[in-house]
Amino acid sequence: MPIDLGRVQKEIRDIDRDKASGVTIEVQGNSVQKLIGCLKGPRDTPFDGGIFYVNIELDDQYPFVPPKMRFITKVWHPNISSANGAICLDILKDQWSPALTLKTALLSLQALLSSPQPDDPQDAVVARQYMGSLAEYEATARQWTQTYAHAQQVVGLEAKVQQIVEMGFGREQALAALKRANGDENGAMEILLGA
């Protein structure tokens, strides 16, 4: 059975309408099964001021199986892999319910940023630091936010993505290449052309 298009479209419309929620979502290309979510770093956390992109993939059986989510923006957080953005959050796994939505999932990610759960870590190194020295953890997380998720950074990144997209590459491809090239657009182009 194909994915329930109606439901996904309703979800997207609902997120677009609700400007106050602080999360947005965007379709990649022409399939609604690949999306990019975006959320703001919560106030009074090391992620404050950051803008975080999340890659979202929907299985054909969505919403009866959870959406696959992974941070595109690099994050320093016990429940998020610092290497590949993989997320450890129960509602994205066995605690998913079909009554949850992409919006509630993105809001949960925002909540996860505010309240790490080091008992169930995704990134053991970060978790160890979090348990051992909170101040050190916060400093690193803040630094990562500034380096990878800061507004100017992101606005700049967005411009670079657009540039690459205009040259005929997919948005996700462009983002991934920029990530690998540490934000250097020439480096990203080399990666894309070399691949």
Binding site: S81, A83, N84, A86, C88, K93, D120, P121, Q122, D123, A124, V125, A127, R128
Partner: peptide
Amino acid sequence: GEEGEEGEEAGQQQ
């Protein structure tokens, strides 16, 4: 390639 070269064994039951 899903949870790929993470290499951090501790704590991650899954």
